[in-house]
Design a protein around this nucleic acid. Sequence first.
DNA 1: CTGTTAGCGCCTTCAT
DNA 2: ATGAAGGCGCTAACAG
Lengths: 346, 346
Amino acid sequence: MKKTTIYDIAKKLNLSAATVSRSLNNHPRISSKTKKEVLRIAQELHYEQNHLAKALQSGKSFIVGVIVPRIDNNFLSSVIRGIEDKLKDFDYHVIICQTHEDEEKEIENINTLLNIQVDGFLLSTCLTSIKHSELLDKIIKKNIPLVYFDRKMEIEGASSVIIDDFKGAYLATMRLIDNGATRIAHFSGNREIQIYNDRLNGYLQALNDAGLCVNLDYVIQVKSSLDDGVEAMDKLFNLEFPPDALFSSSDFAAFGAIQYLKSKNINIPEDFLVFGFGNENFTKFDELSISSVNQFPLEMGRITAEVFLDIISKSTIKNKVVKNIVLEPELIERKSSLKVFQFSGA
Amino acid sequence: MKKTTIYDIAKKLNLSAATVSRSLNNHPRISSKTKKEVLRIAQELHYEQNHLAKALQSGKSFIVGVIVPRIDNNFLSSVIRGIEDKLKDFDYHVIICQTHEDEEKEIENINTLLNIQVDGFLLSTCLTSIKHSELLDKIIKKNIPLVYFDRKMEIEGASSVIIDDFKGAYLATMRLIDNGATRIAHFSGNREIQIYNDRLNGYLQALNDAGLCVNLDYVIQVKSSLDDGVEAMDKLFNLEFPPDALFSSSDFAAFGAIQYLKSKNINIPEDFLVFGFGNENFTKFDELSISSVNQFPLEMGRITAEVFLDIISKSTIKNKVVKNIVLEPELIERKSSLKVFQFSGA
DNA sequence: CTGTTAGCGCCTTCAT
DNA sequence: ATGAAGGCGCTAACAG
């Protein structure tokens, strides 16, 4: 059986397709009698709007493209959920693309989404070099809303929703210091990516403010993976003076670090303090109990979607809405960074 | 600047839009000279095909909908990656929806995807009751390819790509028995979902074949989460005769079980053997080293996509292609299920 | 309040 | 080998 269109229901009611269309869209100056009839017949005939036709006609696809490094972690999948939850009330659909931290793949994804004419880009980017600014400019030029979340780039005309990574890092490091650490190592990410650079700077600032000297041997760049955490920890413990604490910009790497420490029978938090970042699901489990920084992923997703909707609805050709939102991080302290009481006789 | 269409390039070349369209689609009876010119001008004008128009015209959206319980685990995100990798070579795009194990949400997702006229459904379903068969029938009636992966339902006309869950469970349980376990507990999932039922049956069959008696107190239904694993383990150890091994249909729950055991100073594998299912990333780490069943997610995704492409290309109105593929599981044995040698003087 | 017309961009008969 | 015409389903502009 053929799909029913507005023409079918127009014919049945001796109306024009335009009137049917208007009725369906609840146009103000259509008699409510007509509207009711149209609605009735529409149901009767199991009418369903053809989004494709509407999209072609309106120039909008009602699809937004979400590009992330990967989806198999709690943080990003929660952000995505936040985005979806918000957007579904506005009839937008979401296409998710993964870059696997590969810049080429991200370019490819952007082009694909450009191709299917998404109405907006929501990006947690892994792009670093400015050689890609051309592509991003294309998005801006085409007036497609571009909202970064978590990981942004500085692009004229792009919006962003991030947390204050510097602050999160600063506070986390400070907690380690407060709790007695003096030789704090740091797992950094790719420093061309702003969040990792910010976290590094927060860490450095905290050391500085506490009057601790910075040992660059303690700063190691890792990928957000357990393997890298293990390996990096091994490096640190082959130094002449190994650290006594770790602030990791990745929970996964922190997990790896803890694996390593346990294998060496180094006790946490008695002998070594650990603070992670991201508040991944596994951090809260007893055996790990990793202190971490909460980035409020659901909220971040929701707000990212809201910024997009704002741009869509309020932007004019003359006046482009651009929002840059910074969320507050929250420290979640678990066993791994607990203060160890020293019974110094006094 | 306006988007360039085939008309623009037709005008520039004094050709008809039809010829341009044919050239772009590499139609056989267009002179190669014309084709070349069209291609040249197309590039010059930065022509990009309007997918929406093509979709409207062809009745195809070039989008396939993927519905999964959740994306934040290794198995499903890898399957999705496999799907994407395969499909992108055929110009199909993927929309991912999460159900969070909520049947209502799955229905909602299916309706949404139906609405945007996806060209196919790739489902890892959480639907159990047959009350939904109506909706699924709608998909079949509309002749939209429906391919289940991992979790299937028995629907006339639907295809599926799954692993042999029964066999995986049977073999895993058998290994535990071979390695000395006699009181093997099982974490089951929702048994209305076929994979969990199959795994349960594999477990039961193995016990039976080994001449071990079944103790239903040892079979506990859990969600695929650490919390549930901890809780279930607590239940088991409050039994008069606690088990000496666990076959869990979820790695996450197995992880939880191990957390519990460690907190009780029960050593693995000396005092207790564990076998999981899914080969999640974390299973391979030293502290855990959980034996598990590999489901070859990348391959499963690829094959699922291939089945879809097969259906698309080979199905006729008379002859509907239906494929049901069962992959072989692979046992991955790690420390958690190792045989413990008993020095029985003999 | 409703009808007519036209067009979004593409492809596909049917001609030539 | 190419052109002309029509239509996919919908909405917006212009009438009345």
